[in-house]
Amino acid sequence: MAQDALLITDLKKKYADGPEALKGVSLTVPAGDFFALLGPNGAGKTTIIGIVTGLVTKTSGTVSVFGIDTDEEPERTRSMIGLCGQEINFDPFMKPRDILVNQAGYYGIQRRIAIPRAEKLLNDLGLGDKFDQIGFKLSGGMKRRLMIARALIHEPKFLVLDEPTAGVDVELRRSMWEYLTTLTKGGITILLTTHYLEEAERLAKHVAIINKGEIVANGTMEEILALHDPSTSLGAGGYSGGKLEEIFIKLTSNNS
């Protein structure tokens, strides 16, 4: 049986000067899966990602990546994860190739190996003519693709994408979908958060919906879509979103 890429058990997080961001989240991402973690702003998605990648310390609970506890062997688990964060956070005065080669260096990959790898990734993501352009001069879509390339430079087994297509135009978003699909076919597990629910519906095999720090739905895409109740759809009288969107609104708007 294949090992789970991510196993989260009863994860809690209370920020020092804030509310309880996570209230006992348990989640399993099977290896090789394309998993969508959905939720409204402030639901706890980025906190989960922060804990998994080591940017946020948890209050309690356990997290393991491919069977390795992130507390016991953080360096090993981090080496298996690639993070494409929500915010554009590369050095804006550096060139794409240098950004990638430096990132590889943080994983102990020598420059002679990293340079051709960086150039291939940039080519694959349509940035082949931007090797030496200063980062801040790239367009929004190019910056997003550069972030994905940076997350992949050390060839991770588990790719975490926190709203990777935010602010990206439709055409580019679709080309990014294709690229991500080829990654999963190559064996990389992907955890995706997004506010574009059609994106999740199209790409993900499994989906979890989080609201106010708690998982409110979790299962295969088919299982979640089966929760759809046509009788509650807005129908022809108003805007009707996709099935997943309607389920999402129903599950996250019942605020107690």
Binding site: T53, L55, P74, R76, L83, G85, N89, F90, Y106, G108
Partner: peptide, 11 residues
């Protein structure tokens, strides 16, 4: 730039 995260997520 918050690019310290580049290093913090690495091993």
């Amino acid at each position: 730039s918050r690019n310290i995260d580049e290093i913090l997520v690495s091993p």
